[in-house]
Design a protein around this nucleic acid. Structure first.
Lengths: 273, 273
DNA sequence: GATAAAATGTTCCACGTGGAACATTTTAAT
DNA sequence: ATTAAAATGTTCCACGTGGAACATTTTATC
């Protein structure tokens, strides 16, 4: 199928064994294995819509048969979606080596190919949510995962960079990382992450560790509402005509005064100055 | 980058937005995210070797930057392996739409793409083992999965077709299916599979169900070795000069006589006729 | 400012997967 | 024919993932 070409066009022609052509979709025969149930019909429809709008991004992989048709090696989902999208042709890499070798390669690549690691997933979700102004719910429907799953990936982005790196490197899993998020400050998160790697803790063990830490923290912080504080809050609330909270601890704290407009801010400023 | 071409060559040029070129590997910049640790170095080396022998099967996906270099969108493993293989150029699909859209597409395709279902995995392993005369151990090293994992996939091929279909359709998982294999005949396997679907049993529940069935079967079959049978076996073994087993049950059975060469077969035939 | 609804954040744990560990069969060597 | 080694078969269960269920925050409405 490779034709003689003039200089300069050579760069367009791929290396040995790799030819890209637009093939009639109807000339492509899927694998002889039983027709596979699609992952999610809604996902296939989404892909079809995307293909309709932007075309097929990556060519499928086929091998040429003697009768002029082509065996589909990889990319069946794109092939089906392209058909659903109403295309009559699809870009395909045609393997000219014999079927045996190409099938081996395709299988091994398929089995081995890297998926995005959890940090990449998280960044991707973040990017998609912000770029397209989507809610988590909307994105979940597009990609076929639960909203909570997306939320949990997103939370990974709040970890200290050192911990994110441990996830990327697969030193800890996203399950560990999610549990580590429960530690109440970054330093503690780093400490727990390091302990997790050092001691080879399981996800359940990290969850338990964090649960204990939270329980201890709550125990030390638990104290009855200080009536004195309450009293001061109430007096200030009454006096200023808006809600006032006292963040009081260990003899010090903050007074938080709420306002809901510039007018009210002005009013408060007058009263306080 | 698309050049005017004569008639006939047009078919070689892909549709809108899809251009295939051989790019200098050094001109391709991987994603700005932190460099990802490879899935398995040995797997990457295998891929590099495969690329050395057969070239890159599928082009990588890149987007063009204004400074003449290219951002790597998908196919980093192949890009790294090609570099390891000593190639200076790699076939690439160049996305000419703006980066935002192409990233969305690539991400969604990456997240959503279908992996082989367990029956396809099993068939693939079977094919590779037989076609290349590999041991399970050799294949396990090639694809980065444990030998026992491959063995367990292969076992799925021994299920009744009806049960295999349930796995393909994801009505039951390969975990269920593996457990179902423990049922001692095909009919029972089908029965358990149907029960599993009907009652929505978990893998642990199916394992337990089979364990109980095996236990019951062993209980009903457990009986002391019949000295009569042993005696007959010994007499026959002595008489024929080779090992003889009696498969005796419920008043009937089979006599199994072992032989290790055509000569011995001849000898036995003479004695038995 | 109050309230309801929408959206997001968080924790716990049931699930199927993958493989460790062992069992059995097959093959090779003698 | 016997034995050892290699190869394959099988079962049990610890693991991390994904999401159910609930908690909290944010936004919209009045």
């Amino acid at each position: 199928m490779k034709t003689a070409l003039g200089r300069g066009l050579d760069a367009l022609i791929p290396e040995k064994g790799l030819e890209i052509v637009n093939l009639q979709i109807s000339k492509i025969v899927p694998n002889k294995k039983q027709p596979r149930k699609n992952f999610k019909d809604s996902a296939l429809k989404d892909l079809a819509q995307s293909i309709k709008e932007r075309g097929v991004i990556q060519p499928i992989l086929v091998s040429k048969k003697n009768d002029g048709s082509f065996n589909l090696i990889a990319g069946e989902r794109r092939w089906r979606a392209a058909s659903m999208a109403g295309l009559s042709k699809i870009p395909a890499v045609v393997k000219s080596v014999d079927e045996k070798d190409s099938l081996e390669i395709a299988l091994i690549e398929n089995i081995q190919r890297e998926n995005l690691n959890p940090m990449e997933m998280a960044s991707s979700f973040d990017y998609l949510l912000n770029t397209y102004d989507l809610t988590q719910d909307a994105l979940s429907q597009r990609i076929g995962k639960d909203r909570a799953t997306i939320a949990n990936y997103m939370r990974l982005l709040k970890l200290p960079v050192e911990v994110q790196k441990l996830v990327s490197e697969e030193s800890i899993s996203m399950g560990h990382a999610r549990a580590i998020l429960g530690a109440d400050n970054k330093k503690k998160q780093i400490d727990v992450a390091r302990t997790t790697v050092k001691k080879g803790l399981s996800v359940r063990e990290v969850e338990e560790l964090i649960r204990e830490k939270v329980k201890i923290k709550k125990k030390t912080e638990k104290r009855p509402a200080d009536p004195h504080v309450k009293d001061v809050e109430e007096r200030l609330t009454s006096s200023l005509g808006t809600k006032v909270h006292l963040k009081h601890k260990g003899g010090k704290g903050k007074i938080e005064i709420e306002y809901y407009s510039l007018e009210e801010l002005d009013r408060l400023l007058e009263m306080l100055t």
